[in-house]
Design a protein around this nucleic acid. Structure first.
Lengths: 229, 229
DNA sequence: ACCTGAACACCGTTCAAGT
DNA sequence: ACCTGAACACCGTTCAAGT
């Protein structure tokens, strides 16, 4: 009978590391995961450097060995979320439908992460691999739909701008257009707000998003048709 | 010879107030003006409660006799700026042109005030008179162009969402789409960025804004035409 | 009614000192 | 190389005390 190895004794594969405290090694992946968990559970006001450090059983100053600022942490989270944006339609569906599906997915992901919108809109994509991957898939979809190279980035930026604004609107309170005591000064507006009508299954934000997205996609398609004619 | 009045003695028009320190009375108007001046000169990072108080020669805690939070101050500034958005075209120009001029003005005003975008997008308009006035003028313009009441708010929200996102884009750095070391992973995107072409007199942000705005306005006009046919 | 001054409970970030 | 602990320079907000 061969000797039964005693657990943890004499069978170590990395003898030099014995006796280490049971803490996960800190790195971008661990920091990103912890930040995402914190934000998902408690929201962005809970995402502080000390809160993040505590969730990793580490001192706040330890984080600065791996990131250079809180902005860095936000960029890590942003890039991780960008991987959740669905671009699959660009290889499987006609351009108009693909754009609509992508825009919906993009809005849905970031409507729960509003503080990241300035990060996406203002920070270079350099060193944000998942973000670059998303742009590559979208650009590829535009190219295969016949878009001229020079117009693609402007079209993407325009759609993205609409997506960002719409992500805010998802979080608007139901009474955002309540005029209150100033109702008399704005009769037409107040009436239009009261009569706002949405298609079945659409809340206010979804209805406005669908209307604007349909309009912009149709308008862009018309632009493309006249440019390539 | 009549007696020459001695300055400040015997000629007081408000005797009860003699000896007051020469400080402007605090109120919403004074706070708004001071906040706007601070932001225009030094940017939003300089708009702190203590900085604002200092510019008014007052203790920070004194501000809380007139506003209940910093959010309140931001709402005052937002409403003041909303008065600068040009809605005059809605009474002077056809709908499509009016919408374009309004959207341009709206974007231009708030591209210099990005921190106010969440305020506009998420806070009720109640007690924001200039904001309500703007919406009234826009709604009126839509009505006179033949828009059905039920669709107007959704159309305005869609246009506004695009304006907000585009206001961010105005502040994007020129190298926002620089792929850096990850260039090889995104050849189509990198090429499209390099070949991005803009009409004469347009920078990147202006070109994307014009493209998206033209598309959305054309799409909305088509929507309207088919709905009222 | 409106102000001051002190205090509170936080922030992000730096840095000497340890291992 | 990577961590700790203390410190720094701030934040927004509250509140007793004054006038």
């Amino acid at each position: 009978m061969p000797p039964v190895p005693v657990k943890g004794v004499g069978t170590k594969t990395a003898p030099r590391r014995a006796g280490r405290p049971p803490r996960a090694l800190l790195g971008h992946a661990q920091i990103t995961r912890a930040a995402l968990r914190l934000v998902t559970r408690d929201g962005y006001k809970a995402l502080t450097m000390s809160g993040l450090a505590k969730s990793l059983n580490v001192a706040p100053s330890a984080l600065y060995n791996h990131v250079s600022s809180k902005q860095d942490v936000l960029l890590l989270v942003e890039d991780a979320l960008m991987g959740r944006v669905d671009v699959s339609a660009f290889t499987e569906r006609p351009w108009e439908e693909a754009v609509r599906l992508w825009a919906h997915s993009y809005r849905d992901v970031f409507s729960a992460h509003l503080p990241l919108i300035p990060v996406i809109a203002l920070l270079p994509v350099t060193n944000a691999p998942q973000t670059i991957t998303m742009y590559e898939a979208v650009t590829d979809g535009f190219l295969r739909a016949g878009w001229p190279q020079e117009r693609i980035i402007n079209a993407i930026v325009a759609l993205e701008s609409f997506v960002f604004g719409s992500a805010y609107d998802v979080n608007a309170p139901g009474d955002i257009f309540a005029t209150g005591e100033l109702e008399d000064a704005a009769p037409h507006f107040t009436a239009a707000v009261a009569r706002r009508g949405n298609p079945a299954g659409h809340n206010d934000a979804d209805a406005a998003f669908a209307l604007g997205l349909d309009a912009m996609v149709a308008g862009l398609a018309a632009t493309l048709a006249s440019a390539t004619r």
